[in-house]
Design a binder for these strands. Sequence first.
DNA 1: CGAACATCCCTTTTT
DNA 2: GGGATGTTCG
Length: 733
Amino acid sequence: MSDYLDRLNPEQRDAVQSLDGPLLVLAGAGTGKTRVLTTRFAHILLSGRASPHQVLAVTFTNKAAREMRERVGAILGHPAEGLWLGTFHALCARMLRRHASELGLTSSFTILDTDDQLRLLKQVMEAHRIDAKRWPAPGLMGAIQRWKDRGLTPDRITPAEDTEFGGGAARAIYADYQARLITLNACDFGDLLLHVTELLRTRPEILDGYHRLFRYILVDEYQDTNVVQYLWLRLLAQRADAPANICCVGDDDQSIYSWRGAEVENILRFEADFPGAKVVRLERNYRSTAPILAAAAGLIAHNDARLGKTLRPGRNDASGEKLTVAALWDSDEEARFVGERIENLRRDDHRLSEIAILVRAGFQTRAFEERLITLNIPYRVIGGLRFYERAEIRDALAYLRCVVQPADDLAFERIVNVPRRGVGDAALASLHAHARARSIPLISAAAEMIDSGGVKGRVRDNLRALITLFAECRDDLDRGVLGHVAVVERLLDESGYTAMWKADKSPDAPGRLDNLSELTRAIAEFETLAGFLEHVSLVMDNDESAGDDKVNLMTLHGAKGLEFDSVFLPGWEEGLFPSQRSLDEGGNKALEEERRLAYVGITRARRRAILSHAANRRIYANWQSSIPSRFLEEIPSEHVEQTGSAAFAREQVRNAPPVFGSPFGLTARRPKTIEAWEQPARPARSSAIAVGARVFHQKFGYGTVTSAEDGRLDVTFEKAGSKRVMDNYVEMV
DNA sequence: CGAACATCCCTTTTT
DNA sequence: GGGATGTTCG
């Protein structure tokens, strides 16, 4: 009956069978982490220790949750039903809907996307008369999110944790923002965790209910938890009546999300947090060849803040290619090099889908895309704009929200003038004023102003048609006259939204229409519109049909958890990787995180890893020179094969007499800031256009320059009068 | 109100 | 170099 246990190695089996008390499983890359987690889950159920709904299983991604659900089902022999299995956010949303009224929400609250969050925050900031120029809203949004990541409600922010933002107004804005969310019956992402945690810590009877419910807690990717997630877990796990039955699986060496609030300390501190905790290390790697593992291990050994763990080959083959490190002249050559190697792999019958190019930052993909296009090699970029983030999809969803949630002001604002209905800033402002005065949602305010004559003419007719359409669609749904898919189609057609894109002559309009029909298809898979909207806000999935045979292009962050036969790791240069920006902000801690990122990159490879760096790189408009990443030297050289046109030059540098009096030559002493990442110094341009010159401007016509300074010209135009213009907008005549 | 122009920025982004 | 976002004029 327990043949599923036979398929584990001794450490894995230990992790699965240690069922009493807290357990930390330190699972290195490729050591069977998911297998342990799913088998443990199934083992708890099959051994009769708990029934499915008594286990709380938390992941970070929907993909991981889906995978776990499937694999548990496979071991059980039937689909697993009634599980508390999902992402932190999905589980919290579920809990929050149960207790919504405690917080002044209804159980049908909306979960806002980032667009809406920002728009709402801007409104609040405006009310506080904050100069949007001086204090850009995204900055404060970030601060609020960090507060939420750390479990800080507005009243919990101590002066030490406050920010300079807005000249000290940040806390008050945060508080108002939270209040507005409640009025709108809405939550942002951070709220899901924040609200539930707050509830658990202030309402013992609610917490007690969950203590009685959950006998086991399983947590995936524990190294990526932030403070509020940690608090949530600890509240649920620590109980008076019994030891905490929590099992966390993670890898401190793969913690790469500190900038999102993740705290490696959570995993480093586990044994202190949960006394009597048992720690199991999984170190046998079944994924990669010996050289790849040795290279990764050598690299990560340079980090200090580690729990310590060494990857060992699980298979007994010492074979395997060395890593390739290619030194190239410039970034164009690097793209050509990678393209050429991929062509070779393809010629040798390697599947393209088993090849990945992993970059540090999104903008690096472009060069490779261009190269792959010219070589006619199919590729996919993973991670870019996701389906539900596209403008047309967000618009369509806003239409739906207006129907399902008439109080959703943010949704209404988004689409009230899309397509154009003549409702501009002025009209919207008067709607707002009326809504605020009467304390009613915008849609109701609009209805009242139509009746009262507060809006007139074309705007009135358009608004009336729109609001009537919403009401009718709502009615169709309530009375079941039309199925929800038919309602969606009606809504998008009669509002003129579909027509807007049909009339659009831009090249991407057809694609957008395709996306809209794709959306309708997705809606059809759900029972109700509300259910669909919940899915959308929580499951921003990127279901790139992974089946096609295409080269995978993505960031290192996006590659976590994936594996490929061949992995290209370009751009290993100081300033780019490790990223200068990170280093400036986070010092040595940040450097260690960059190194973990490098470790994640190398350990994605099953059979071969091809690293590269360029001596000259095109950044924005101009060329900058760069030096190889320090990480390259941290990889034990016996596992590396050097190649590339610039390899010889690099050897010369290495063997050259010491520079700066250092015994290690150039490599030991690095300038603190790398030229490539300094602000591109804008040379005080001695403009070729001098005072008195006669010039032509596209818009203003002919004129004479009266003063010229740093590229800015004062010009007296013959027709348009005196203007200040940039010199690159005029031509000399 | 909306198009055209000008300016500003440019890491990573599991939900 | 380029996309997103404001500003300005018709």
